[in-house]
Design a protein around this nucleic acid. Sequence first.
DNA 1: GATGAATGAGGGTTCATTCAT
DNA 2: CATGAATGAACCCTCATTCAT
Lengths: 201, 201, 201, 201
Amino acid sequence: MTKTEENKLQKRAALLESAFELFVDRGIVRTSIADITKKAGLAKGTFYLYFSDKYDIRDKLIAYRAAELFRKAARALAKKPQSSFEDEMIFLIDHIIRQLDKEKMLLNFVSKNLEWGIFKHAIVQGTDEIGVDVPQFYQDMLERSGRTFRNPELMLFMIVELVGSTIHNVILYKEPVALDVLKPELYETIRLMIHAQEEAG
Amino acid sequence: MTKTEENKLQKRAALLESAFELFVDRGIVRTSIADITKKAGLAKGTFYLYFSDKYDIRDKLIAYRAAELFRKAARALAKKPQSSFEDEMIFLIDHIIRQLDKEKMLLNFVSKNLEWGIFKHAIVQGTDEIGVDVPQFYQDMLERSGRTFRNPELMLFMIVELVGSTIHNVILYKEPVALDVLKPELYETIRLMIHAQEEAG
Amino acid sequence: MTKTEENKLQKRAALLESAFELFVDRGIVRTSIADITKKAGLAKGTFYLYFSDKYDIRDKLIAYRAAELFRKAARALAKKPQSSFEDEMIFLIDHIIRQLDKEKMLLNFVSKNLEWGIFKHAIVQGTDEIGVDVPQFYQDMLERSGRTFRNPELMLFMIVELVGSTIHNVILYKEPVALDVLKPELYETIRLMIHAQEEAG
Amino acid sequence: MTKTEENKLQKRAALLESAFELFVDRGIVRTSIADITKKAGLAKGTFYLYFSDKYDIRDKLIAYRAAELFRKAARALAKKPQSSFEDEMIFLIDHIIRQLDKEKMLLNFVSKNLEWGIFKHAIVQGTDEIGVDVPQFYQDMLERSGRTFRNPELMLFMIVELVGSTIHNVILYKEPVALDVLKPELYETIRLMIHAQEEAG
DNA sequence: GATGAATGAGGGTTCATTCAT
DNA sequence: CATGAATGAACCCTCATTCAT
């Protein structure tokens, strides 16, 4: 990698980082490109060498951060001995929730976006964002478990939506309950959903 | 009510209606106050006699429309003979889903906002939006059923979030399944959640 | 006319005047809307209440100024007793040339635009620019003279183009000759063109 | 010529060619230096090694293309046996008009610029554009004919302006007449102008 | 109360030009 | 010689908000 190329990567990273902080801080609408470049210590025009507009950088950011969340959880799962399908599922979810609880900024940003679109198309095409093939990963989990479900995709969809939409309020505002009150109920519900979907072996 | 007062109400309604159509049509960011007043046939300055800014009118609108959804469902429930708690709950949810399926515009607008904040604080304080006291209504339902649950508020929260977040994709994009595929699974899950929360009588 | 309306007309006029001077001074490309409004003592946004963009004001300006040139010449002609077709034609042309010679700024601006498009479509539609129907005026001149020409429109076209393109260099740079050297040759050529086009009576 | 020198000429030519096509296509104002270099397959900075800015390349281009038009016409004339002054003049003009009618792109570009400045100073000083000395050529034509005119330079000026300004509308928009309707009238007018200028031998 | 003309800060975007590689 | 990343001034235009009428 030449010096110039390194420089470019650095600048791109600086823009992404600045944008992330500003988006989280004051929202996307209230963040201007001038703000982003200023924070990154670059000229306004430089932004357009790397991204086409504000929404382009936002999308790259969401995809990247969400994939990262999942990647970490998947890596942790891989280190553990195999367990039941529902245990693995809950392990993954719990891992992601823990990350988001630690990094509330990230939660607020990924927020409502950590949902179907992301999970289904999480293979980010691009030169640099390393992709994660969530559907394939899920498929593998199913096969490994040897169990069959009525509608596995719908099941995942419902679980993801339930988790994604409940944790937002709970982590950020502790409303209507604190996170450790939600968790057991949430995980029990998920177990129930999985059992209900299972077809008689 | 004097003629002037009638006039004022009419103008306020015109602004709300215009704003709603424009928000739904092109989104809030792309709607200007000039657009709203023009569509309402009023002068730009008049807007500020009724609302403080774009986000003020949006909030009034969401609260009003969401309350209306609920009010209609509650009214329909009242006409029926009493049934089990879970049947009544599913009746209400199904009624709201049907409304949103018919009026996709409304869904797209209320969208992700049909959730905890709204349900909990749906008593809109204001001069004219007729309030609906959802928590009280829920309390009455619980008492009427004579049953007791571990954490009724958390239970409602989870149900509302699950419904709110799944129907959006399903109604608007039929993704990952069509609405009538989702419904039975969704309602079964809700029943399971209610049972799991019930305390031994 | 209300005070507000008077005010608006004044502002519109101020913008037109400022734009004209700047366009003449440094050309259209090098004139920004900020320049125009600043010179007119107005805010930048005010420009857009009166014109849609730089090229809109330019077109209004050209049409208005060209029509004015013609209107003055026509008015002067009307005060004279009727004479031959070619004398009237040359009187008009000479009158316009004299105006342009006095106001070189105007020449530089109308410049190459004082030609077919303008003459043919000089009826400016708009709320305020008073139109002049050049084709109709020409038609009347022809009829009044009682003479017939092979192709009157083509004849006018050639005359207008010849005049318009020669006077520019001559008035502004005295190149290749001074204006009073050009004039007799120009007018003689015009007479020749008219005679050559005349059909045998 | 060394290989490097050849390379340079090639690059220069590529820039000229790209600029010409873009100028013709979308106008000078809307063409950026990035566009030109991209089309030429060169880097942006390279442009400045050959031209000082956009207007520099435009001027070089107009001079070059106009000179080329004339050079071709003059070469064709040289192949013919000598004829009368007016016949030769009209031959040249007709030759140029034919070229422009074939290559409308070129007409649109040279357009209003094919006039006095160009004809008088058509000897392009520069490293590579081969010059054509139009005034000298005209002088030779006059001497060869053995005739004398009152003001030969003014005569040429008027002819050039008349031709240049009429063909633009006629070729591009067929307005107010088609080219073959204009031509006989135009050429007759030119003959009349020449005769009127001739001094009694 | 109602109007809508006026404001001017601020947004996104382009692009000629420079200069380190 | 050639490159193309970086710059940042400058542009056009939008729009929430004010205020004289």
